[in-house]
Amino acid sequence: MNDVQLKNPMYAELDRVIDSYRDAKGPLIQVLHRAQEIFGYLPPEVQQFVSQRMGIPPSKVYGVVTFYNFFRTVPQGKHVINVCLGTACHVKGADRVVEILREELGIGIGQTTEDRQFTLSAVRCLGACGLAPVMMIDEEVYGKLDRAKIKHVLQQYAS
């Protein structure tokens, strides 16, 4: 399987990543981070590839992937909306933000819109508590959210 996979540039890159960690101790999580960057998520084939290449039992790779919240096993929408559910945002109405997004997009936390434009997910504290409530779309952080601002921001991404 490897030869076929290695023709795929994504697998080739992952292979180089694994190589670069050859001398590091306990690099599995770091490799999975890079794999997720490359593929966008960690489907079984990618986990299997990592397991084989690193000589780590598949059960262990799977165990690590499922243990940590940061790793995803399903593909994401084009834009990922991370709503902050940290304490500061909670006391300033993060629940409302989730509710408004649900109304606007028709999806809840952990779901992706049918057109694959948006995935809604939750994070804990984006470090911008001063601007609570806060959400992050892809890499951009939006603070002091209310209904009008959320609508306005979503419009910029809808295409």
Binding site: G26, I29, H33, G63, V64, F67, Y68, N69, R124
Partner: peptide, 23 residues
Amino acid sequence: RMGAGAFVCGEETALIASIEGER
């Protein structure tokens, strides 16, 4: 070393396990 989103990993022995690449 990057963590991967697990609160318990702030606890020192869990953190050690995580650096080692374990759950």
